[in-house]
């Protein structure tokens, strides 16, 4: 069972929270191509290692916040509020700047 330290309430058990997927996603402009839009809709970081994600303290304060968590170990490396810059971790930098390839087959 995950336990997360809500930045507003402190450490709580996982059932109080809801996972919201990758954080720090920029919503593209309306005019972008279908491919870019599809990428925004469907493609998220999904690597083994650090994931910057957002969680909602649903049965608590009702606030969204960010979590830097290792998807291989479930270790939480950082918890920070929405709008705050994501902390960088030395050995994780490689995995967080993945190549961005287009979705779509020839």
């Amino acid at each position: 069972m995950l336990r997360l330290a809500c930045p507003y309430c402190g450490v709580r058990d996982q059932p109080e929270f809801r996972f919201g997927g990758q954080s720090h996603i920029t919503r593209p402009d309306f005019e972008v191509s279908d491919a870019v839009w599809a990428d925004y809709l469907f493609v998220r970081d999904n690597l083994k290692g650090m994931l910057y994600e957002r969680w909602l303290h649903e049965y608590g304060c009702g606030r969204w916040f960010n979590v830097a968590r290792d998807t291989a170990t479930h270790e939480v490396r950082a918890v920070y509020r929405m709008g705050e810059a994501k902390p960088m971790f030395h050995h994780e930098q490689a995995s967080s700047c993945q190549q961005t390839a287009k979705v779509g087959a020839p």
Binding site: G20, S23, R27, R54, L56, E58, G62, R63, W64, M82, G83
Partner: peptide, 13 residues
């Protein structure tokens, strides 16, 4: 309600 909150807190604070 949760959808409103998510957009408000995460996208349009």
């Amino acid at each position: 309600a949760s959808w409103f909150e998510e957009w408000h807190q995460c996208e349009w604070p």
